[in-house]
Structure formats: structure tokens, C-alpha cells
């Protein structure tokens, strides 16, 4: 097992380098630079602009800049934000909590709702239940998130006026109740958006397993249908379901970009969007590092989890 983990971590290193290099090059090739953004504020002379470029290190070729950035990263230094005038590590620290809270809540909600829905749909395929859950799933997957956000705000904040439309707290109110009230609507929306794929995956996986011989064995043993479904069918269907949920985890760290924007939620998503639009290279790269590391870690954890879910998958 240890050998397996070490091997996987070693494989992860080149993957990590590829991801960060690709993002670094792409964001640097995009028109405009941090110098341009800063220059917009005041009228800079050509000479002053060049000085600014040199101080930001933008005069060097891309690969040299990447090497410098990587060297800094190894020392634990993410650089400073060129527009927010703060260290990137501080910005991420401040933003990652709210993101984890919002997306974490919604993933837990989505899992708790979607798995039972998927199982019920699989037990009665092509029934009214199944069709209804299909329609809801497809709506969730295909509706644009900003649309759901706007509908949610219109109904619950404007018309019914029971939930706040923006932010994490009312000014001056730091209580838990206030936080939960702010959290409810955006987390429900993120939940609905992601539930569909889990429902569909659960339905498909359970339906497939229900056709297996050992399900017939379980029934012929005289087990209750509930035990047949949950202990024998769902347990075998868990791998694709867990994978689907695992795929949502990067969002947990990266934040639900659009929903955070709509609700003014101070998470990673909005930090990243602002960083991109202001060509804030260091912040973009900082977010990239956090997200890609979390993806790699989740993948490793999933692979370890598989060996527990299915004893046929060899450890090591």
C-alpha cells in the first residue's frame, strides 16, 4: 500500500508541472499584462512603463519567468497580487474557507438526496418516479447556473423576502444563524446543479448490478428486498458513484464560480475571476496550484478508496 502511494505521488509530480506550465503560458500569452492594468490607472511614460515591466519581471522570456515562479513556489512563496496589493497566500487563505463551506454543504446535500433518488429510480425503471427524477436531473445539469441563481434570488429574496440575496453575513452580525440563512440558497442551487450527475450515475450503476447473478442469489436466500438493494446492489454500485462525487471535489476548492459571483459570496471562484480579468498572474497561479493539488490528492484518495470498495482491486 505504501509503495502504491509513493508511486502515485511520484507520478503526480510531472502531471502537476504540466498543469501549472500550461496555465502559466496560457495566461501570459493572453493579451494584456499586469503592467497594462496598472498603467491604466495613471498616465505612464514609456520609460516608466518599461521600469514597471522590469520590476514585475515581465521583461524576461516566459520559460524563465516560469522557472522563477516555480523556484519561489518551492520556497513556499506564492508571490504578491498585482492588483489587490496583498500576498497571494493570504488571499487564498481568506477565500478558501467560504468556498469549502458553500460547496461542501452542497456536495453533502447533493449526495444525501441523489443516492436515494437514483436507487429508487433504478428499482422501478421507466416508472413515473424514474421519469420524474430523469427530468429533474437533466434540468439541473443543463440549466445555466446564473439562471437558477437569478430565479432563486427573485423568488426567495425579492418576492417572498425570506432569504438574503448576497454575501455571507449581514453587516455586524456574525452569528451562526445568520451565516446559515445566507448559505441556504446558494448551497441549494449548487446542490441542484450537481445532483443530476450523481442521480444518473447511481441509477445506471444500480440498474446494472441488479441484473447480476449474485442479486438473484441474494433473493433466493430469502433476503428482504431492502437488504438486497442496499447491502448487495448499492454496495457493488458504489465505485462509479464515488467517482462521480470525487469529481465534484475540485469544485469544492475552486469554488462555484458563477454562483459565488451571483450571490457575492467571498470564495475562491470570485477571487479567480477577478484575478483573470485583471491579469493578476500570481493570483491565477496560486489558485491553479491549490486546485490542481486538490485534484491530484482526491484522485489518489479515490484510488485508495477503490481497494476498500472492491476487494478484487489489488492493493499495491
Amino acid at each position: 500500500m505504501l509503495k502504491f502511494i509513493v508511486k502515485r505521488i511520484l507520478i503526480s509530480i510531472p502531471i502537476f508541472l504540466c498543469i501549472t506550465f500550461a496555465v502559466f503560458v496560457l495566461s501570459n500569452l493572453a493579451p494584456g499584462s499586469p503592467a497594462d492594468v496598472i498603467a491604466q490607472a495613471g498616465n505612464l511614460t514609456e520609460e516608466a512603463y518599461r521600469q514597471l515591466e522590469i520590476s514585475l519581471g515581465l521583461d524576461k522570456p516566459i520559460y524563465v519567468r516560469y522557472a522563477i515562479w516555480l523556484g519561489d513556489l518551492l520556497k513556499g512563496y506564492f508571490g504578491n497580487s498585482t492588483t489587490l496589493y496583498a500576498p497571494v497566500s493570504y488571499l487564498i487563505q481568506k477565500r478558501i474557507g467560504p468556498s469549502l463551506l458553500l460547496t461542501g454543504t452542497s456536495i453533502v446535500l447533493a449526495t444525501l438526496l441523489a443516492i436515494p433518488l437514483g436507487v429508487i429510480a433504478a428499482c422501478k425503471p421507466y416508472s413515473a418516479w424514474d421519469n420524474a427524477s430523469s427530468v429533474v436531473s437533466f434540468l439541473g445539469v443543463s440549466l445555466p447556473s446564473f439562471f437558477l441563481c437569478l430565479v432563486g434570488i427573485y423568488v426567495f429574496s425579492v418576492k417572498l423576502a425570506i432569504l438574503p440575496a448576497s454575501g455571507m453575513h449581514n453587516p455586524g452580525d456574525e452569528s451562526l444563524g445568520d451565516l446559515l440563512r445566507h448559505l441556504l440558497l446558494p448551497s441549494l442551487i449548487v446542490c441542484v446543479l450537481n445532483m443530476g450527475s450523481i442521480v444518473k450515475q447511481t441509477r445506471g450503476a444500480v440498474l446494472e448490478v441488479l441484473g447480476e447473478d449474485y442479486i438473484k442469489t441474494a433473493r433466493s436466500k430469502g433476503l428482504k428486498e431492502k437488504v438486497v438493494i442496499i447491502k448487495h446492489a448499492l454496495r457493488n454500485a458504489l465505485i462509479p458513484i464515488v467517482t462521480t462525487i470525487g469529481m465534484l471535489v475540485p469544485m469544492l476548492v475552486g469554488g462555484a464560480v458563477v454562483t459565488e459571483q451571483c450571490f457575492g459570496w467571498p470564495g475562491m471562484g470570485s477571487l479567480m475571476i477577478n484575478a483573470i480579468s485583471t491579469r493578476d498572474y500570481n493570483t491565477i497561479m496560486g489558485c491553479t496550484v491549490v486546485i490542481s493539488v486538490s485534484v491530484l490528492v482526491v484522485n489518489l484518495l479515490l484510488d485508495i478508496l477503490y481497494t476498500y470498495l472492491d476487494p478484487r482491486i489489488k492493493k499495491g
Binding site: 449474485y214 436466500k221 454496495r235 457493488n236
Partner: peptide
């Protein structure tokens, strides 16, 4: 029927490779 299955009538199947649940 559930109480009869497995208790009064048992069944074994053609393919023992797939008749047992792989995860238990």
C-alpha cells in the same frame, strides 16, 4: 415467499463465478 426461499427451497446456479457477491 421470502420466508420459504432459502429456508424450504434453496437454489444453486450455473455460474459460481458470478453467483457470489464479489465485495463480501
Amino acid at each position: 415467499i421470502r420466508q420459504i426461499r432459502g429456508k424450504k427451497i434453496s437454489m444453486i446456479f450455473q455460474d459460481p463465478m458470478t453467483a457470489l457477491n464479489p465485495v463480501y
